[in-house]
């Protein structure tokens, strides 16, 4: 079966019912999608299927025939980060990094589809993605920075400024 991933067409051998996650990781050696739960619950396996964020652990290969798949390997290399990648780096949105691929792709789909998204729409787009490390504040901040075009692609310079505290959900205690 033919599968286009990050613009490259592959001839894959796996059976039709193999999960897309398994094919990407084990057959194509694209390891940015992670097997966090393999049951649709965590979002670490998220890839873009024709631009839409999808859980690759739940997608049988047969369901994506002819589709264009994007993984984080297809976003931007180290010296030419995409705005979403640069924002995640700048805002410390990746701590252990295991959830990061999924959040990056969910954020990228939002940036491409509705760059004017509100806070609520951002939270909606990221919901269902679990991060156990960051507490989400920095992830939301990074996605919004990318949406607002406030990304500084050069790496963060050392600075001694204290950070602003942020309230994610209106009405919650600061």
């Amino acid at each position: 079966m033919k599968l286009t991933v990050n613009g490259v067409e592959h001839d894959v051998q796996a059976p039709q019912l193999a999960s897309l996650l398994h094919v990407l990781r084990e057959e194509l050696d694209l390891t940015s999608p992670k097997a966090g739960c393999q049951q649709g619950g965590c979002g670490t396996c998220t890839v873009l299927v024709d631009g839409e964020p999808r859980r690759s652990c739940l997608l049988p290969l047969a369901a994506v025939e002819g589709a264009a798949i994007t993984t984080v390997e297809g976003l931007g290399a180290a010296d030419e980060l995409s705005p979403m990648q640069a924002a995640f780096d700048e805002h410390y949105a990746a701590q252990c990094g295991f959830c990061t691929s999924g959040f990056l792709l969910a954020g990228t789909a939002l940036l491409n589809g509705s760059p004017g998204a509100t806070r609520e729409e951002v939270l909606e787009a990221l919901s269902g993605h679990v991060c156990r490390c960051t507490g989400y504040v920095k992830i939301v901040r990074a996605v919004e920075a990318a949406l607002h075009g406030e990304v500084h692609p050069e790496r963060v310079e050392a600075s001694f400024e204290p950070e602003e505290t942020d309230v994610l959900i209106p009405g919650s205690p600061a």
């Binding site: 984080v72 180290a78 640069a86 995640f88 780096d89 990746a94 990061t100 790496r155 001694f160 400024e161």
Partner: peptide
């Protein structure tokens, strides 16, 4: 108290962390 770049930040956001 300083804001320093993470040594593993770029690897994380490019999916290269092994």
């Amino acid at each position: 108290g300083a804001r320093l770049p993470r040594y593993d930040g770029v690897a994380h956001v490019t999916g290269r962390t092994t």
